[in-house]
Design a protein around this nucleic acid. Structure first.
Length: 414
RNA sequence: GGAGAGGUGGCCGAGUGGUUGAAGGCGCUGCUCUCGAAAAGCAGUAUGCGGGCAACCGUAUCGUGGGUUCAAAUCCCACCCUCUCCGCCA
């Protein structure tokens, strides 16, 4: 959510940036509602003052018939005006919350196709390898058929060596995160609607991403980012406590409605996977450098796992509602001879913090919103593909990167 | 899941219809006293929103949402959360 004052002062800018991101927003209507809202608010407050004044005057006195009648009329008028105000405010909030975060001027224009390659690392292998699904099914290590039988399409079982591999990846990731000062965290996998929408996930396009629990205000998390952001909701943290760094481990549940057919074979796009997420709460002036740092950590992880990758700056149209700036790390897929998304790292500035009311007291004693950032450390389903396809040996086995050996009791291949 | 108790300011804790945004205490800040500190005394000390250049004014907030009333922290209803006991259970 943006600051209404900022929108009032920069209406044209907000319009332009929203358009670049591909969002249709009616700023003029919002500003109109803003004016109406404040007019009504003043009216309601004046009426309330009259009510308060009369109540104070009458304290411990017996009110006259006339005063009671006057009070009753006041009450009705207040209630009517309040209802009107509420309606205006609801509409106002709806529009305000649908306005995407602004973006810096150097953001590449256009959609996904304009994502801009920033750097490459590693040697993309060009020889023929088995795609991860074929490889896994032949060995009985990946089972989508039974996943479908038990739960439906896009659910799967992982078996055998892939299970210790997954645990090793997370142990390694946690160790790396701890080295950089991040506190490991496990989180609720079910959260309230407020928590989901506060992180910007209920917005258009995303609502179809979240699984809801019937009959209760609970939703399965699509990423640990959601409960971690909510962790400090409605809190005012001390400036000295910032930055607050978490490495959250959780499953991610995604409906992926309408996403079938697109890159849909195997583990690339599934309804459930485990993920280690890096998360930062920091002062506004530090968010840019933390963004760089998170990206570096993602690169460090890929390098340790010996996965060739490229780093991509995300274009305006592909940023989504919350992001101010975003980088993706894309792994090299030898089976498809192309780079595909593996990790994502966003600076959302104060967009989520404003919505969930996460603030800090700065050195001058002023309270202001923190900035939040999130980055994937390891999403196993996709990392699993990258490992299987990049580390296949001529004998068909998959070599496990040396960095993981200590977490796999010395096992070196699957 | 059942029975009971309870949710008030940074914290503890009073308050069962009317100058209560809220006593008292703790903590914190400033001042006085002191060479300095402690102690003591005095004063100040919530947040959001709207308006104002500002001092400030108004309004809302006593778990949340409704209701009753001229007037609600206080009465009624629903929900949420915490604690104790019982049941169940990894």
């Amino acid at each position: 959510m943006l600051d209404i004052q900022f929108i009032r002062d920069n209406a044209e800018l907000v319009k332009q940036k929203s358009k670049q991101k591909g969002y249709e927003v009616d700023i003029d209507q919002l500003l109109q509602l803003d004016i109406e809202r404040r007019t009504r608010l003043t009216q309601v407050e004046e009426l309330r003052k009259r009510r308060n004044d009369q109540a104070a005057e009458l304290k411990n006195k017996k009110p006259s018939e006339e005063q009671i009648a006057g009070g009753k009329q006041l009450k009705e008028e207040i209630s009517q005006r309040e209802t009107e105000l509420q309606q205006i405010e609801a509409k106002y909030l709806e529009i305000l919350q649908s306005i995407p975060n602004v973006i810096p001027d150097d953001t590449p224009e256009g959609g996904e196709e304009n994502n801009c390659e920033e750097k490459k690392w590693g040697e993309p292998r060009q020889d023929e390898v088995k795609d991860h699904l074929t490889w896994g099914e032949e060995r009985g290590l990946i089972d989508f058929e039974r996943g479908a039988k038990v739960a439906g399409a896009k659910f799967y079982y992982l078996k055998g060596g892939l299970v210790p591999l997954e645990l090793a990846v997370f142990q390694f990731g946690l160790q790396l995160a701890a080295k950089h000062g991040f506190t490991p965290m496990t989180v609720p996998h079910l959260v309230s609607s407020r928590t989901v929408s506060g992180t910007g996930f209920m917005a258009k396009g995303d609502e179809q991403q979240i699984y809801k629990i019937e009959g209760e205000d609970l939703n399965l998390i699509a990423t640990a980012e959601i409960p971690i952001t909510g962790y400090h909701a409605d809190e005012i943290v001390k400036a000295a406590e910032l930055p607050i760094l978490y490495a959250g481990l959780s499953p991610a549940y995604r409906r992926e409605a309408g996403a079938y057919g697109k890159h849909s074979k195997g583990l690339y796009r599934v309804h459930q996977f485990n993920k280690l997420e890096l998360y930062v709460f920091c002062k506004p002036e530090d968010s840019e450098s933390w963004h760089q740092k998170l990206v570096q950590m993602e690169e460090e992880l890929c390098q340790a796992l010996e996965i060739p990758y490229r780093l991509v700056r995300i274009a305006a149209g592909d940023l989504g509602l919350s992001a101010y700036k975003k980088f993706d790390v894309e792994y090299w897929s030898p089976a498809e001879k192309t780079y595909r998304e593996l990790m994502s790292c966003s600076n959302v500035t104060d967009y989520q913090a404003r919505r969930l009311n996460i603030r800090y007291k700065d050195e001058t004693g002023k309270t202001q919103f923190v900035h939040t950032l999130n980055g994937t450390a390891a999403a196993f389903s996709r990392l699993c593909i990258a490992l299987i396809e990049n580390h296949q040996k001529p004998d068909g086995k998959v070599q496990i990167p040396a960095a993981l050996h200590t977490f796999m009791s010395g096992q070196t291949e699957i």
